[in-house]
Design a protein around this nucleic acid. Structure first.
Lengths: 235, 235
DNA sequence: AACATTTTTTGAACGCGTTCAAAAAACGAA
DNA sequence: TTCGTTTTTTGAACGCGTTCAAAAAATGTT
C-alpha cells in the first residue's frame, strides 16, 4: 500500500494527506474528491500526493479499512451472551451497512480493492474474519462443534456475496441488499443447525474445502493452453 | 446500450466501429485499445465513436455478450444424453473459461458491466441462464423434480461467484479459479441429489427465496436513515 | 431547385489518474 | 563548514474517457 516516510515530518505530511482525503471523501464524495483536490486541500502538490500513496485506490483502501474498524468497534457492544447465531449475524451485517451506507457511492471501488489482492485487503479480511469469529463464539446455543471452527470462514464467504450485492445495489437506500441481509441471517443459522446431520455436515465441509487454497493446488488443473484464434497481448 | 442508427450507412459505420473495437480488444488488449485507437482504426473521429456507443464499457458489454454466445454454441455439442449433472456443470464452466481465457485481462471490467444493471447484461444473463437450463434438463439421471425448475437459477448464482473469482484471479493461467471450477461441480451435483431429503430441500428453497426480488420486497427493510456524522454528497 | 429538418461527423476542449525528471531541503560524515 | 547522499517536493507533461457546440451531409417537403 502506501510508502512509509523516513522522517517525522514526512510522517506528518502523509497523515495530513490521508486525513484530508478521508474528510474530502466524506464531504464531497468519490468523484469530486480528485487527487488534485485532495492534494490542494492538504496543501501539497499533486505529484507529492503520489509520493505517499501509490494510487487513488490506495487511499480508498485505507478508507475501507477505517470503516471496517468502525464496524468492529460498533459490534463490540452487541455480542453479549444470550444472542442467537442468527441475531449475531444480523448484528454484524447491520453494523456494516450502518457504517458503510454513507459511502455507498464507493461500492464498486470498495469491491475492486477488496478483490484485487495487491492492496492491504489482508487487514480488512482479518477484521471481517474476526467479526465472524466473535459472532460464532458468542452465539447461544453454540453452533455444532464440528463446524464451529470453520463457520466464520463460511460466514465471510456469505458476507462477501452480500457485500457485492450491496455495492452495486441501485434501489433506493439499498432496499434490496438490506432485505437480503435481513433474510439471509436465518437461512445461514438454520444451515448451521442442520450441520448436526452428517449429510448436511459433509456438504458444509465440501464447501469449505472449495475455499482452501491447498485443496485447490492439489488438483491437476494444468491442461495445456489451446492456441486461441484471437489472443490479446498481455497488458 | 448503443444507439441505433437511423440510416443504412449509419448502421454500417456502427458495425464497422464495433468490429474494429472487438478486433482491437483481441489483438491489443484492453488498455491499449483506447477509444482514440479504436476510432482511428475504424477511420472515424473520436467523438464519432461516442455517437454510436455511450461509453467504452458499452463496447466491452458487447464483447462479453459475443463471448457468451460463443460459449453457448460451444456447449450445444456436449449436452448429449447420458451426461451427469456434474459433467454438464463442468462442461458449461469449461466452455466458459475456454472462451474467456484470452480475455482474462478484461475480468474486472467484465464483472463491472455484469453487476451494474444499466447495461445490456440482461441479454448476457439470459444466455447464461439458458445454458444452466440445458445443463439441468440434459442431465441423466434428472435432478429431483422438486428443484428441477429452480436449479438453473441456483447454478447461475454459483457461476457468478466462480466468475468473480476468475475475474480477479492473479495466479498463473488462472490456476486457482480453474481448480475451483473443477471442484465445485461435484459439490453442487451432490447438493442436488441431497435435495431429495426434505431438510436439504427446504434449505435449497430458502436460498432460492433470497434471490427472488418479490420475496425481498415483501420484507420491511425501511428503517429510517440515521443521520450520519459524515455524509458524502451524492455524485 | 430551394429550403427546413434531421442525422452524421468533426475538432477542440475538460478534468481525470498517473509518471518523471529535476529542484529543494534535510541529513551525515569529513 | 563543506560536500555527497538521501529524502521530500514540485511543475510539467502524457494519454485517457468523455462532452459539446457546431459543421457537414443526407433527407423530406413544397
Amino acid at each position: 500500500m502506501s510508502i512509509q516516510p523516513r522522517t517525522e515530518k514526512g510522517r506528518q505530511t502523509q497523515a495530513k494527506l490521508l486525513a484530508t482525503a478521508l474528510d474530502c471523501f466524506a464531504e464531497e464524495g468519490y468523484r469530486a474528491s480528485s487527487m488534485r483536490v485532495i492534494a490542494a486541500k492538504a496543501g501539497v502538490s499533486l505529484s507529492h500526493a503520489y509520493y505517499y500513496f501509490q494510487s487513488k485506490e490506495d487511499i480508498v483502501t485505507q478508507l475501507l479499512l477505517n470503516l471496517r474498524i468502525e464496524q468492529y468497534e460498533l459490534c463490540q457492544g452487541v455480542f453479549d451472551e444470550g444472542n442467537t447465531l442468527e441475531s449475531n449475524i444480523r448484528a454484524v451485517l447491520d453494523a456494516g451497512v450502518q457504517v458503510l451506507a454513507p459511502y455507498h457511492e464507493f461500492g464498486p471501488v470498495f469491491l475492486k480493492v477488496l478483490l484485487s489482492d495487491e492492496h492491504a485487503n489482508d487487514e480488512v479480511s482479518k477484521i471481517e474474519l474476526s467479526l465472524w469469529e466473535q459472532a460464532v463464539t458468542g452465539a447461544r446455543p453454540l453452533p455444532p462443534l464440528g463446524i464451529r471452527r470453520d463457520l466464520p470462514k463460511f460466514l465471510l464467504l456469505v458476507s462477501r456475496h452480500v457485500f457485492s450485492a450491496w455495492a452495486y445495489d441501485q434501489s433506493a437506500q439499498q432496499r434490496r441488499s438490506r432485505a437480503l441481509m435481513k433474510n439471509i441471517a436465518p437461512v445461514v443459522a438454520k444451515f448451521a443447525v442442520l450441520c448436526r446431520l452428517p449429510v448436511v455436515r459433509s456438504l458444509f465441509e465440501d464447501i469449505l474445502a472449495l475455499l482452501d487454497p491447498k485443496t485447490l493446488d492439489e488438483t491437476e488443473a494444468n491442461q495445456p493452453l489451446r492456441s486461441a484464434l484471437r489472443r490479446p497481448r498481455a497488458s
